[in-house]
Simulated scan of single mutants.
Amino acid sequence: MFKKEVELFEFPTSLGLRKKRHEISPGVKDLPDWLRTLGFYQGMNIYDTFHLAAPKYLMDFNETTGLLNADHAIQYAKEQAFILHKQLHNDYFKLIIGGDCSVLIGTSLALKQKGTYALFFLDGHTDYIPSECSQTGGIAGMDLAVVSEYGEENLTNISGLKPYFEEDYIYCVGNRELTPSYVAPILNTNINYYDLNETRSTGTTSITQSFLQMAEDNALDGFFIHLDVDVLSDEIMPAVDSRAEGGLTYRELARLIRPLIYHPRCTGLEITTLDPSLDTTGEITRRFIKFFYDL
């Protein structure tokens, strides 16, 4: 699966999502335990494991900012970054298991403290919207905006580190929410943006080669991969918070990330939003695990 030994980080926050009426908290917080139960870690060359307990889930909505649980998410991101940053001095592959997409904020803080990195952002959404355009206020739907300095200052400039990633060093790949008002914000940036249709027309090989060349040309310290599993087709990955028709096949996803995870500049990868409560038989997750072991 990974050529390097792996340092595993479990960051099972669900603060970035608005819970459903029937939920006590969003089920993504159980993802690390679920993957362990189904054997994802077995056979993986894990050097060490780090765990930050899931924070208590709240519905703390700020009417002024339009954000849900922002202060609590910031605190979790700081704690997450503290743990991760201490390990960035070594060459182990960093595998982060969420949680929802807000874990990207803590990851980004740690990387920014270490140096200048690129981000390969795989998601079925852009996650690049202002809070006033969000229907839920959930930070998990704004994480790419936050880490590239678009949004509330308390989120985008934690510890005075904004921007956590430069726009030119971000590739956003796989969005299939194509409503003009939704994609308008990201189109007004220097982010390298490929929606699902453009990903297929451009070609996975061209996109990854372009990304790797960009990282080399700018002599970056490395790059990181964010994988929201809802980038996959709804037919094969329905166990997510925000479902939508279409999406990447496993073959297409493999073609995108295989050249990246085996590249010497790759620092690591984070997996987010797979909700065990939506996969009661484990069949969906087992297919996902097999995909990784076949890479």
Rank of each mutant, 00 (worst) to 15 (best):
Y169S: 09
C133Q: 05
A239R: 04
T136Y: 08
Q213A: 13
L187S: 09
E177F: 03
I289F: 01
P185W: 01
L104H: 02
Q42V: 01
E245W: 07
H72Y: 12
D60Q: 13
Q75G: 08
T49W: 00
T205W: 07
M59Q: 15
E152W: 11
D279F: 05
E198L: 13
F82G: 04
T267G: 01
L68G: 08
L187E: 01
L256E: 08
V147S: 00
T126Q: 02
S159Q: 14
R258T: 09
G174Q: 03
M237R: 10
V6R: 10
I225P: 02
P26S: 13
R258D: 11
A54S: 14
I225G: 02
Y117I: 04
H125K: 12
L161Q: 14
R265E: 10
M237C: 15
K19W: 10
G66K: 10
N188Y: 15
V146A: 04
V173R: 01
Q80L: 09
E132D: 15
T281E: 15
T126P: 11
I97K: 02
C172G: 10
T202S: 15
I97A: 03
E5Y: 02
G203L: 04
L220N: 09
V240R: 08
L35K: 03
R36V: 04
S25Y: 09
F121S: 03
L248M: 15
L119F: 03
S210C: 00
L196D: 02
I105Y: 01
I261P: 12
I289W: 01
E10I: 05
G66H: 01
L35M: 06
N90G: 07
F292H: 05
E63G: 05
N69R: 04
Y57Q: 07
T280N: 12
D279H: 07
R255M: 06
F93S: 04
F2Q: 07
S25F: 01
G141D: 03
L8D: 02
A244M: 14
T285A: 14
E252Q: 05
N197W: 12
G115D: 00
T49F: 00
K78F: 07
N157I: 09
Y250D: 05
S210G: 15
D123T: 02
I207W: 12
V146L: 11
N157H: 15
M142D: 06
D123F: 01
L256C: 03
F82H: 12
I46Y: 06
Q213F: 06
D30R: 14
D230E: 13
I24F: 08
T116K: 12
L88V: 05
